[in-house]
Design a binder for these strands. Sequence first.
RNA 1: GGCGUCGUGGCCGAGUGGCUAGGCUGGGCUCUGCAAAAGCUCCUACAGCGGUUCGAAUCCGCUCGACGCCUCCA
Length: 486
Amino acid sequence: MQTIQIYNSLTNKKEALIPIKEGYIGMYVCGPTVYSNVHMGNVRSFMSFDMIYRYFLHLGYKVRYVRNITDAGHLTDDDAEDKISTKARLEKLEPMEIVQKYTIDFHQILQEFNFLPPSIEPTATGHIMEQIKAIETIIDHGLAYEINGSVYFDVLKYNETENYGILSKRKIEDTIENTRILEGQSDKKNAQDFALWKKAEPEHIQRWDSPWGTGFPGWHLECTVMSTKYLGKEFDIHGGGMDLKFPHHECEIAQAQACNHINPVKYWMHGNMLTLNGKKMSKSTGNNILPRELLSGENDNITKAYTPSVVRFFMMQAHYRSVLDFSNDAILAAEKGYNRLMESLKLLKQLKSGPNSTFKVSDWKQKCYDAMNDDFNTPILIAHLFEAAKFINLIQDEKEFLNSEDLTDFKATIHLFINDVLGLDNKSKIDHNSNKLDGVVEMLIQLRKEARDDGNWALSDQIRNDLSELGIHLKDGKDGTSFSIK
RNA sequence: GGCGUCGUGGCCGAGUGGCUAGGCUGGGCUCUGCAAAAGCUCCUACAGCGGUUCGAAUCCGCUCGACGCCUCCA
């Protein structure tokens, strides 16, 4: 099996991936908060982990991939003023109605972008009992306290024996200094303590009964509880966006340690941000672009629509740990490159083997693996795929050759990395009329050939130009004319 | 203010002590009736200033700039 070097945010260096149980990988990724549409920034993050998941599967690991849906807490009623009014039930916004709407939307988007579904997709609201139990455990262990219907994690006490800041590399003194000012009238003993359970104020429309009264769980708790439940007290990989590192992931470590006395995660992975106009995409600031807008072209930041595969390709051309700036020019360039790659891939099917091989497929193949094994370096992988595209074209022109064994391997490897690992979907749309269309184009090519043989360039060019306007491009080669439909 | 990441050719984006990816764009050539496509080729960069080193885009220091986190966030 290949050895993967994986960048661990906990140690800030690349380490060899050695699963806790050989052959198995437990991976938890923080999912979306389903109170609004996911934007492209969210999609990028999930896509990085989709690629990683795909690669693990390809290597033959048995992976349990857990990605949660955050559907509890945080939600307040805009109409708080009306809370006592006798509004009819149906007129009020039902929290689960919102959750349902955006969960469906989220799934549809991911499907459009050819995501593999995770093994388990648990929801926070489905694990309220477990969260309450976890809080009780933490209280029992003396690391949380209840005040006024809320329960807080005692960060200072925890820090006496453990290291709060182990992941984010923050010193607790700095945390104290910088939070004190912000939190004036809180119930908390210390400003840096975080909520495990929040008392529900009247405007909170999601609420559950608990030993501490009516309320809702703190945001950080769900991930601790669900990862532990499905992956165990100690598991291999925890992923998420860079922006979750602090406080969310730091708190997760603290909670898990407080519950189970064990460092829960072996490898922490953080995907970097997708920026728009040089700034992080964000729901709150409105600086974002929605997946559907990208697919329909309806956004002021873009001049045209893009296919899901082009978008995916664009994302994969950057390393998951680098900031990627989204712009029309950048994705337009990616689209051109992608199309070129796909054109050469179409030739791949019809490629004929030669008597011998003029380049070493095995070397090239290993370079592809090396790229992926080096912390999932998809940009390098893609560079190698472009190299392959060049070879495909040269083989087609009979300037390079592969024997049948190498050719089979070459085809399989390209298919593997393009489709299985990168998740690029080059299937052409199933069109029952495509055969008829092909026939018509072939007929026109034949007519044009006759015109060309007669030296009737005017007619010949007219056929070519008219077809071109319809998106059908003719290419005159040595062995006759071929065409591609865009 | 604190902590952290980063600054690569016209653009996007890898690399991270010597062998200097890839894509897009632009120029040239081959092929071609002309195109297109394809191939070949040219434009050789690492914010600035110091330092370490035989050698630095890569390590160290400083300066400038950008971004992220510190509040819900992928």
